[in-house]
Simulated scan of single mutants.
Amino acid sequence: MSGSFDHHRIGPLPSFLATPSDEAVKQVRMPTGDDMWLITDYAVGRAALADTRLSRAAATRPDAPKWGSVDLSPNSIMSLDGADHARLRRIAVAAFTSARVAAQAAAIEEAADALLDQLQVAGPGADLVGGYASPLPMVALGSLLGVPLADRPAFDAAVTALFDMTPRGVRRRGHHVLTLIEYMSSLIERKRDVPGQDLLSALVQVEQSGEMSRAELINLGLALLMAGYETTTQQLSLAILELLTGDGPDGKCVESLVDELLRKTPSTPISFPRVATEDLVLGGTTVRQGEAVIVSLLHCNHDAEVFCPSGKQRHARRPAHLTFGHGAHRCMGAPLVLLQMKIALTRLWQRFPGLRLAPGDESLVWSEGLATRGVSKLIVEW
């Protein structure tokens, strides 16, 4: 069953996640008023994420139970099932090569050093979210997609606006999406004429071969932005906060440190909803056809039967955490996230070995959201 975690370090959670429970599967009410089945047990959650009887496509239908006012497009790769999803994922994975990800390291390192230079000049009292954790993933995405340097300011502004969760930002979300669609369309045309070594150029070549439509190409580009910006920004912010309020890096192997930070502090606390296409049993609970299921990745990652509170696994081989999901919809961008976090955390503590959270309640401001969690301000000293 799900273990306990320090709510002061986890931050605010929706009421259906914050309430402790010994049930592996329980029914909860979402902010929309719709009921869903919430899974908090690691084994049950992992199985559910890979169960083809639980459909992402069905969850985007108008009559399906909803968790919020904003849902993914039914044409997004994150909303597809079966053969449609498998075809697009195969194309995306083929373009998202390990060599192409590794090639982003130099740009990320250069950007990290430049941002840290700016923080050093600004002096203690700097905000690590606005000054480091937020702009760094934008550089990585721009480099991966091949966004020209001259376009970066407008591109960055459009992507940032898309994730503005203020009431005004949410109202204007449709406008921001259209702005990005228009930009993506123009960038695709330029890649068609002058291809590069970037991910978008590779996908344009696939589209030209007839394996993918133009609409699918645009949707895939937008999906990469949706999945790669805010979640990475928040993941990096949460990792830094965990180190500031815990033991710090303390000479740990960076790979194992990053993996443990991802397990303990997932920026995506719950999976996207899935709807049962037939009656099935999950953890001894019967889920009827048409009912929706969500997995608490946060609770599963803290399952005391799988992960010890100390972080030392009980099994000979450490089980994989669920921060990147599991099954057909496991996050394709995981290698890029890992690369960014390794570089970002290493560079940060090399530059500021005495980094600490500034005193005062105003030094830490939590973001409140359903799909992602994190901090909007993190004031530090060194």
Rank of each mutant, 00 (worst) to 15 (best):
D250G: 03
V147G: 04
M341I: 03
T160S: 14
L54M: 03
G174P: 13
A106F: 07
T268I: 12
E305I: 04
P31K: 09
R89L: 06
M1K: 05
V365G: 05
R214V: 13
L38D: 05
P269A: 02
G221T: 01
A94C: 06
P249H: 03
Q313Y: 15
E368W: 10
C308M: 12
P135H: 01
W382H: 14
I108L: 01
L149P: 00
Y42G: 02
S55I: 05
S76V: 11
K377D: 04
N219I: 01
R56V: 07
E211M: 08
V258T: 04
R173A: 04
Q340E: 13
P124F: 09
A57W: 13
A154N: 10
A276M: 01
E291W: 03
V170P: 05
L149H: 10
R87V: 01
A92H: 06
R171S: 11
M332S: 11
L144D: 05
A122M: 10
A50Q: 11
I181P: 00
V139A: 00
S237M: 08
S76L: 12
T19R: 12
L241P: 06
L128T: 00
G360S: 06
T160Y: 15
A320T: 13
T285V: 15
P273L: 03
A24T: 01
R87Y: 03
H8F: 09
T179H: 12
V93N: 11
A57R: 13
N301T: 05
F272Y: 06
V44M: 06
A223G: 09
A215V: 15
V281I: 12
L49Y: 09
V93I: 12
D247L: 04
T372M: 13
L224M: 13
F5M: 14
A227T: 08
I181Q: 15
V139E: 00
L199E: 07
L17W: 10
I188T: 14
Q120Y: 08
A239P: 01
A58D: 05
L128E: 00
A122C: 03
Q235S: 11
V70Q: 10
H8N: 11
K252T: 11
P135R: 10
A239W: 08
A92Y: 08
P167M: 06
V147P: 06
G248Q: 08
V287P: 05
R330E: 13
L257M: 11
S213G: 14
G221S: 11
G248D: 08
Q313R: 15
C253S: 13
R29T: 14
D71S: 14
C300E: 02
Y132W: 02
K342Q: 15
A106H: 10
V159E: 03
A126C: 07
L357T: 02
L339S: 05
V287K: 01
A304R: 14
A122G: 00
P137C: 04
E278A: 15
K26I: 00
R53H: 13
Q313W: 15
S55E: 02
F16E: 04
R168A: 15
